[in-house]
């Protein structure tokens, strides 16, 4: 192993360890310990319940959908912000972060007001037979709102580091614009896109505040796992809530580890 030029491995690792331990590992260990107190029979009944399964499908399915949609939209936004100079660019750039700062309940209430059947957007969509508020589609809109900044912010610095002369050269050498984008611009962006999408997905899975207002919260239709956890707590079923929380944690961990692996592979290929 090469010795790093800056000293302080012991101190740095110690601080990191204590920090992670207190803020992340300790609460998670508590969660898992609590989940472990459930009798296996009850745990099985909980996870075999069609309502639980439906909530997991809604939470993970819609979050994945929102993360996927945020990829092209986020790429486009990052492209516009990095490659063009226009009045109001800085304002738009700052606005991208707003969803991270705004209390998500506020976002949820605003989106619901817009998308109810007689709201500004809902009124336009209702004649087309599209209902957004109080359906899984509405959950998707709220999750897209919270996931989008992650893709933009992950892609932007990488895009800023790419020399526009490279894609100019590709076009001059006879590539179509699409080829230039696909073969020259996109490959170095891919790891950043994957990171952004993974962060956005993780954020969406855990989102509660905004979803609760727009979802309608109907069991088997638009109920998310975090709501199910709150419901369990209200019934004083703390082991049940912990079990659901632990399951979400595990599933998210497996998915994120998978994404990281994919990303490592694609990054490696690019470097080679």
């Amino acid at each position: 192993m090469r010795r790093p030029v800056l000293p302080g491995f012991g101190l740095a690792t110690g601080v990191t360890g204590v920090y992670l331990g207190l803020l992340v590992l300790l609460p998670l260990a508590g969660l898992l310990a609590k989940a472990g107190t459930t009798e296996p029979g009850r745990a099985w009944a909980l996870f075999a319940d069609p309502r639980t399964l439906s909530a997991f499908r809604v939470s993970f399915g819609v979050s994945a959908g929102a993360a996927l949609v945020s990829v092209p939209v986020g790429l486009l936004l990052a492209w516009v912000l990095e490659r063009y100079r226009f009045p109001g660019r800085r304002l738009l750039d700052a606005a991208v972060d707003l969803p991270l700062a705004l209390p998500t309940a506020v976002a949820g209430i605003a989106l619901t007001t817009l998308y109810v059947p007689d709201g500004w957007m809902g009124r336009l969509l209702a004649p087309l037979g599209i209902a957004v508020a109080f359906t899984p589609l509405g959950i998707g809109v709220a999750l897209l709102f919270v996931a989008l900044p992650f893709v933009v912010r992950a892609v932007q610095p990488v895009l800023a580091g790419l020399d526009p002369e490279a894609d100019e050269a590709a076009v001059i050498l006879g590539a179509t614009p699409w080829q230039a984008f696909r073969l020259v611009v996109l490959p170095p962006l891919l790891p950043a896109v994957a990171t952004g999408a993974a962060l956005g997905f993780a954020r969406a899975v855990g989102e509660y505040g905004s979803v609760i207002f727009i979802a309608g919260n109907r069991p088997m239709v638009s109920e998310i796992v975090p709501l199910l956890i709150v419901t369990k707590l209200e019934q004083y079923d703390i082991p049940g809530a912990a079990l659901l929380g632990a399951a979400m944690l595990l599933l998210s961990f497996v998915l994120l580890a998978g994404i990281n692996r994919l990303q490592g592979r694609s990054g490696g290929r690019h470097a080679a």
Partner: peptide
């Protein structure tokens, strides 16, 4: 159509959101 978590939430859903 909408199952809010509390009574005030339902009142708002009905009265303000129509």
């Amino acid at each position: 159509p909408v199952l809010d978590t509390g009574a005030r939430g339902s009142t708002i859903t009905f009265a303000q959101r129509g």
